[in-house]
Amino acid sequence: MNIFRFSGDMTHLMSVLVLLLKIHTIKSCAGISLKTQELYALVFLARYLDIVTNFISLYNTIMKLIFLGSSFMIVWYIRRHRIVRRSYDKEHDTFRHLFLVLPCFILALLINERSAFKEIMWTFSLYLEAVAILPQLVLLQRTKNIDNLTGQYVFFLGAYRALYICNWIYRYFTEPHYVHWITWISGLVQTLLYADFFYYYFNSWKNNVKLQLPA
């Protein structure tokens, strides 16, 4: 495992922790898209079907369990927790799951490395992860005041994607036959979706003003 991959995993973990910190301590999920969180839960469910059959390392298994557990915990908090759910911005979080899930599933059926069930689900999870942030970005655009923790959550997620691209470039040059078009292209699409957010995030940071995305 190289430094880019490890840093990417750590920023991914940080994003989850920042979100749980906000929900658990402030008891608020204002500005957080339930749709995006549900899509992430589905992404991890589809991707980690091999969690018991394919052992890679203790590190991998523990991280998989953390991502699975935390994603379902966050969804539970927003839907069921009696205080947290009151701060959920239902009116503005209107993105439809099916518009993302269905095309990703069809694409996974058509374009995959091997047409076995687990392989298709794995490919589906890659495509879905690439676009799962969209409801969150739409919600940020509609939110007038984005609080620091929400901004940091999206920032860490974007950093995780950017570091994974560095990881793939590194692996391409250091490992024999390391070519993964499906992973790379969906990963690149996913990272590009953050470009706009990063632009405004750094601007607000540089000018020391509150983060706000133009409608």
Binding site: R5, N60, R114, N167, T183
Partner: peptide, 10 residues
């Protein structure tokens, strides 16, 4: 043949 080492990523 296919390489499956992308599966060792999260």
């Amino acid at each position: 043949c296919f390489q499956y080492n992308a599966k060792d990523e999260l």
